[in-house]
């Protein structure tokens, strides 16, 4: 029945007069909704996605490195691998610096820990069977990165993270060191080799 009423010239006229004004108002509202809420949200919503992907890559990498034969192998693998390329492939993710370290934490006294950033630096006290032992050995990978939103508005002199410049993040992932054995020939612990 409605179709019959609106299909006439009077109905069409009425609809266009009243409806168009409503649509114009709604269009403005839609424009505001899109420009002020939806687009900025979409723009920023890529950041947690990129952060999640980056975190997952860092976590996977540190887990792999913790399974190395010895500590020097882990450091060498990190330097030689295309870890940075993998992070860059996410898009809008740039790793500024990467640091790998081994953290030994005393189980008896969890406040005490020793961090080394190169092989052969763990003192005898912190090695398995040492005075501080038993200890937990964790490989720690820290990445300082900048994540860009979908669109970055470059405004000279204005530095607003997430709007005019990428957002800086500090990613830190750790994994338990796996090879707790000793080299049968040299007698050195693989964790310190």
């Amino acid at each position: 029945m409605r179709k019959t009423k609106n299909s006439g010239p009077t109905g069409r006229k009425l609809r266009s007069q009243a409806g168009s004004s409503q649509i114009t108002e709604f269009g403005a509202a839609i424009f505001l909704l899109l420009s002020c809420i939806v687009i900025p949200l979409l723009d920023l919503s890529i950041v947690p996605v990129r952060l999640g992907l980056g975190k997952s890559i860092v976590s996977h990498r540190v887990h792999q490195l913790a399974q190395s034969e010895c500590l020097s192998d882990a450091f060498k693998s990190l330097q030689e691998s295309d870890f940075h390329t993998g992070l860059t492939r996410i898009g809008g993710f740039s790793a500024k610096s990467t640091q790998l370290s081994l953290v030994a934490t005393s189980v008896k006294n969890p406040d005490q820990s020793m961090t080394v950033d190169r092989p052969g630096r763990l003192s005898t006290d912190w090695l398995p069977g040492g005075n501080k032992g038993p200890c937990l050995y964790r490989l720690d990978l820290t990445v300082d990165a900048e994540i860009e939103p979908l669109i970055t508005a470059k405004v000279p002199g204005v530095q607003i993270p997430g709007l005019t410049r990428p957002i800086p993040f500090h990613l830190r992932e750790e994994s338990n060191w796996e090879n707790m054995g000793c080299d049968p020939l040299s007698g050195e612990f693989f964790i310190n080799k």
């Binding site: 399974q67 034969e69 069977g129 796996e178 090879n179 707790m180 054995g181 000793c182």
Partner: peptide, 14 residues
């Protein structure tokens, strides 16, 4: 080594 057996572990497969 020094009386300790190497524990089993996960490796990278390299």
């Amino acid at each position: 080594v020094k009386g300790n057996a190497a524990p089993m572990r996960l490796t990278r497969g390299k």
